[in-house]
Design a protein around this nucleic acid. Structure first.
Lengths: 228, 228, 228, 228
DNA sequence: TATGAATGAGACTTCATTCAT
DNA sequence: AATGAATGAAGTCTCATTCAT
């Protein structure tokens, strides 16, 4: 099975600002601002996030933010663009060379996706895009085209592979793919909206949920085998 | 399978206002305002919706809104409260008297839920609550308690029923329930965020999606039968 | 000494509204509104008093108020006009026929004024007029002309009487009169502004204050007598 | 009699602004805003004064005001607090070392008070506080405690001094003190309310008024002397 | 005459954006 | 490049006034 790609160092950007970073690499500024903006946009929404907060969290002044981003809206777009750049290229390559069963591949994809995206700092981007789609339709369309679409195609190929090999029954692939996408999007939304508001007794363990979900779906996908 | 309940006449709430007499309209005002607010909050989010827009859409002036709701925030809370009042009581009763197979019941529940809630004017409430959870955590908790929780319990009973009768295999009910909830929440989010931004080729037919989803999940839930 | 003029019935207007007065004399309405308005204007000032409060305190609806007074400003003016109508005519007549010493007359005037005006419902009118003089200069001028001026003249005559009889020394009457007016205006202001905010230990007993004040002033007014 | 302290050059606080550099102005802003606010609050009252006016008079925009004061109400409180800071400390020290007669001291205090406070830019603060006491009782109580109370105590000591030395007769000091306070408060109220509305013929010269008032009161305070 | 629902001008306050330093 | 003081458009909310009933 493919090894995990090297985890981004990912400098814990959402702790209390140490403030004495001062003369560090200046080229890090936009990145810090994007990290701060992502966290706040996800948490409070675009309109309710003040640029001053973003700047403060990134350890710079309000004016500095406008040196790097011409407006709050451009900052928003940059956040989305940045968070989704080339997320699926490696996945595609892994798929080509994969040699195990398709059922394993499906399970692997789901867990891997959660580890890579669901647990990353960028995990809220989907929640953000969906929440703000009404105000930023072109961003939503962009996201659909750059993220959902490729992911959809990838999963489509996985299912196709299983059907082609006879491991999976024939099925309406278009919809079956959304059966895999839906729980992941649900998980992201849940993590960033309901989870923080729910008592511990109602928390949902993502890994167990994915396990159950995949098992059930595979139950419906796998072709009946004589031995089974 | 249970026959469909008679389709509600489906309150044509946003057609051209007939502009009735003042006194007649008084008791209708709060409802009209709530409808308008729901639509706009879902579409643009809480912060980006201006109360003047809400008032205009309800056919009244800005000041009138504040006669009925003391603040924008209270309006928001009223929208949520109003939209979820007693949604699940009938469902519960249907469940008790149902005599078909559990598989049919699951399928029925999902489709029925979509018809009753997913297609109603209140369908956006879930998207709204999840989008604004960061700003209104107590509303999210309220929603969890009043809507998600009861729905969860109801579905839990359905699965229990199937397991008890031997129709379903044993399964981790907590998570399996979320396997049924997740696609529905996904559908709502999709309908109110991505769908309006996507080209026709990428539209998702909710009924077909539910069909596929249920079929796949049931494949994993149903106990293996000798004849099968 | 002159008997007190018959106390106006003065229907305790600042208790909880009984509301079931309904079809009582309609001609009482403006008076009730004026009473309510006076009390509220004195307490909260013109701008901070809402006409709805005035109406509610008078037991009528907001709309009714505008039947009797074309605007809030006219209501204000009516309050002032009403509260000062012919306050000094009786005083003047008493003065003409008074036969005691001028010192006694001064003392009598001061105490009587306090009893008649300082303790009446209209006592706040001076505070009101002075507080709002900046916004209603013509009202202040009107008040000066109708109330302060006549009062000034009256007191001037009293002092003149004393000087003419040799009971008082010569003095700059213009200013001496203000020495009598000043403590009374001070008392009114105090009663309606500081007194309600002060702890009991700092309360000022008006009668004792007037006593002391008059005694001291008379000490400076009375001509030295050989026997004394 | 103590010589008058050299007349202060009398703070030319409301002349044409020289429009300095931004950074230089920063620490001056709150003061300019307080000056402007004091003038307008005294003139028009709290409610009728618009923050935009205050800002305009201070030469800044509306938004700038809110950088320095979080709300109109806090601005009001700051105006009062600022205007009364440490007004009485010097007075107290002068009193201790004074060597003249108590009658002279009384006269000196009154004139000095008028020069220092009555003629200063902060002169309207008493009028303001009394006018707004109904809406800001805690401010009125604060003023009573910080200004009226200490002034009262100071004057009480002056009278005590005179009585102890046999220069003044015994008298009810509590009330006698108010006989000194009352005309000063009257003067302030008059200056800021009636005076601007009265024709020149009815203007009151403060210094002459104080002279007369003090002479009359001293007439009642001084112990009779054999030679006199 | 009386009501009170409705209005809309106007107030306070916020905050994205600019710009002198 | 960075700052943060200043701006002013825009939003929420109030309340005097109107008017159909």
């Amino acid at each position: 099975m493919a090894t995990l790609p090297p985890q981004r160092p990912h400098d814990a950007s959402d702790d209390a600002e140490p403030r004495q970073r001062r003369s560090r690499r200046k080229e890090a500024r936009p990145g810090e601002l994007l990290d701060a903006a992502l966290a706040l946009f996800v948490e409070k929404g675009f309109a309710a996030t003040r640029v001053e907060e973003v700047a403060a969290r990134a350890g710079v002044s309000k004016g500095t933010l406008f040196i790097y981003f011409p407006s709050k809206e451009e900052l928003f777009k940059a956040v989305v663009r940045e968070s989704i750049s080339g997320k699926y290229t490696e996945f595609g390559q892994e798929l080509e060379t994969y040699t195990g069963t398709s059922a394993e591949l499906v399970r692997y994809c789901m867990h891997e996706w959660w580890r890579e995206i669901g647990m990353s700092a960028a995990s809220g981007i989907t929640k953000l895009v969906m929440s703000e789609a009404g105000m930023f339709p072109e961003i939503a369309a962009f996201y659909q085209q750059e993220v959902i679409g490729p992911g959809h195609d990838l999963l489509g190929k996985v299912l196709q592979r299983g059907i082609a090999s006879g491991e999976f029954r024939p099925m309406p692939i278009e919809y079956a793919v959304y059966s895999l996408i839906a729980p992941m999007i649900f998980l992201l939304m849940w993590k960033h909206s309901m989870a923080p508001c729910c008592p511990p007794s109602q928390q949902l363990d993502p890994v167990s949920f994915i396990d159950t979900q995949v098992s059930l779906l595979l139950g419906g996908m796998l072709a009946p085998t004589p031995t089974r």
